[in-house]
Design a protein around this nucleic acid. Sequence first.
DNA 1: CGCGATTTGTGCACGTCTTCACAAGCGCCT
DNA 2: AGGCGCTTGTGAAGACGTGCACAAATCGCG
Lengths: 256, 256
Amino acid sequence: MSQHRHPGAPGRAGAVPALPDLPEATVARLPEYLRALHNLAESGHETVSSEGLASAAGVNSAKLRKDLSHLGSYGTRGVGYDVALLVDQIEYVLGLTQRRAVALVGVGNLGHALAGYDGFAGRGFRIAALLDADPSRVGEEINGLVVRHVDELPRVAAEEAIAIGVIATPARAAQAVADQLVAVGVTSILNFAPCVLSVPEGVDVRKVDLAIELQILSFHEHRKASLTALPATGGSALTALPGGLAVTDTQEAIGT
Amino acid sequence: MSQHRHPGAPGRAGAVPALPDLPEATVARLPEYLRALHNLAESGHETVSSEGLASAAGVNSAKLRKDLSHLGSYGTRGVGYDVALLVDQIEYVLGLTQRRAVALVGVGNLGHALAGYDGFAGRGFRIAALLDADPSRVGEEINGLVVRHVDELPRVAAEEAIAIGVIATPARAAQAVADQLVAVGVTSILNFAPCVLSVPEGVDVRKVDLAIELQILSFHEHRKASLTALPATGGSALTALPGGLAVTDTQEAIGT
DNA sequence: CGCGATTTGTGCACGTCTTCACAAGCGCCT
DNA sequence: AGGCGCTTGTGAAGACGTGCACAAATCGCG
């Protein structure tokens, strides 16, 4: 596997493959910038200002400029950023120039949906294998892929270089699956099971828990309710009364 | 629908319903503590130390103590925290004492999975309505609920107090759905569509983008690869070689 | 009743992230 | 060629989050 060629930085001399170590907060925003840039490119924009891109991505323009400055100077003062160039840059930094293979374990309710999610294919990933521990699910075909038994993981890993493992099993099975993924060399795991995984150092785990997101919203909902119940407290922050037909316009809507 | 009685703080005199305004980072962790506490309660623990709860939730014990201290003193020095009491407290703060009604818009691939996700019912939420704009999907029954047309949203909202709207539509439809939700008084939205929503002030939006999570993992994967390719750089950070059957216990998870 | 073991709650220092504000640089127009 | 308006890139300050380390508080035991 030869390293993919660095696509951006056309005339720029200097260290080529050295990845700057970006702040974690910046890394978390780059994908959002990338999505906004793709939209802009589709709608014909060749360049974009930090202001324009920031509002398309839903962030502050100063933050965006600082984020982009961490990957180098790819803007032109007085003009803005070249959309195509920036896309290449961000895709390179995120490691999306190679289409990474994803193994999805657990094809229950959620796993089914993930297997059919077209947002993966369009954004640099390819579901390379579907696995499940339930023999009655093995053999089922989803989106052109046949579900295999999770014990075949070593064979699957031998066939293709699995870059990322996705766990969509019940919580009680998640740790065992994680151990199996680690055992075959997977060092990045996306965990949808509501539990904490313990993994050896060097393995990254990101967790997505749908119920947690709802609970966070519930907190704010609860707080809003308790505030409107006590009008004494001084804030002029919330003016929103329900039913007000208030329609948007606050932020530049995105151009699809 | 009377306000549920504040369950915790049994002997405590003072302001009853006043919600302390917690740091956002703390709020984001409370649901995780809550889940860990439920597990502990099921396995028979009556009390738990900050150390124990912290490791069950995958965080530092000092951080956990500071988080809990924000909601008041509910621990006993030398002993730990009363599990049941803490559960009540956190559920109260998160506003989970009332089972909140959720309207789910978009019953495609992902929406289907969400409609069947049992993690909602078990954690303080109830899917009150399924909606979709596609007439061919209207009428379909999922998990005992019939899909209704999204234009019926005002009627749905009149029937039940919708606390939270979940958007699981394609990106191009998401803004319109958000506007409709806001128009019927929804002030909390969980958005699965890969786009930025603009909403009036006072409305909370949380976004979950599966592809973004993968891209963040991809970045770290890319970085790990570029580091092992350049062994010169001084870090002793990564010692992990694949294939090593290294099992668990480190507890280092990735930060959010 | 007092003492030691244990665990919480928190002051403090440190690092990270955000935001402002502005100098430096670029292109365009005259 | 020169000046002017626009936009990037960044220093500095402030807000926020984290983790250490320890005092205060509680329980159990002799």
